[in-house]
Amino acid sequence: MDRVLEIGGFAAGYCGRLFAHSGYDVVRIESLPAPRGWVSQAASDYYLHAAKRRVETSDPSLIARLAAEADIVIAEAATADSLVALGFNGWQTPVKVSITPFGATGPKRNWQATPSVILAMGGYTNLMGDPDRAPLTLPGHYPEFQSGAFAYTAANACRIAKQKNTIDIGMLEVVMALSQFTTVMWHCAKTIRSRHGNDFWTVVPTNLFRCMDGWAYLNIVPTFWDAFAIFLKRPELLIDQRFKSNDLRSQNRDVLHRIIADTIAHMARSEIEQRAAECRVPVGVVQTLSEVLDDPHLKQREFWHSVTNGRSTIQSPRPAWKIHGDALTELQLTEPESTHG
């Protein structure tokens, strides 16, 4: 199995997580101050760093020696220049992956960024939130985690090919690459996609509605319209000329939304879930974090991995894929080892 050296914050940490959960020998260098995350340091450690060996050092010669012994190095840095300052260019590792906010080249290679800056520049923020208010950023670590997944994919691809390579991943390009139809909408339909609150806008009805005990999201693409009317117990909608097509539903969006809101308001989430399953319509209820942790579907599918640090054990999501026949084992979270050479 490959030896993987990991240096950096949430992107490198996430990439290393994927390697560690797949059984690779991952050594994490804890040399840089931890970037500010959305959660406690303990939660970050449990999520990202279980099953890794962690070494606390800022000794460049030791890091270079570890890089020389590794098959893959994943190095995340705040800017292109700080990547160079790490000594990245001199390391002789067969597969080297750098992750920086804007990539290793280009006029903005040394710009400063956080996830909210990357999401803004990458086109996501402009699409989220209400049209008459400030756009809304996405909480969490989407640019970093997706960059880590690209790094994992690229590094493994090189190892499959037994190829030596240096890989440059910029988080801004990661986010831009994951646009849905924003770019072609502009270039081909001459429309700048904009934000509409919870409304997906181009497919009607697709929105969040308040129910008796929370919220439910309906995503009724045209093929589900008939089933949706049955789900809603409003069969008269099927013969209502205002709603005969997605275009007409779009034109009569406000009227339709009022009808739906009035109906959903009298339904509990459990009833919504039951009827959505029976009628086979794409509807999801908003779950609290406690409810996600207790979700019977996730439990039955063995979604949770036990991670222990010797004193306590928490449930952490396993990687989102599972290879049938491979068993989950409890993972250990260890403290960093301090070293001076």
Partner: peptide, 9 residues
Amino acid sequence: AAFCGPWLI
């Protein structure tokens, strides 16, 4: 759900 892992932890 895995994306939300840090909050869930």
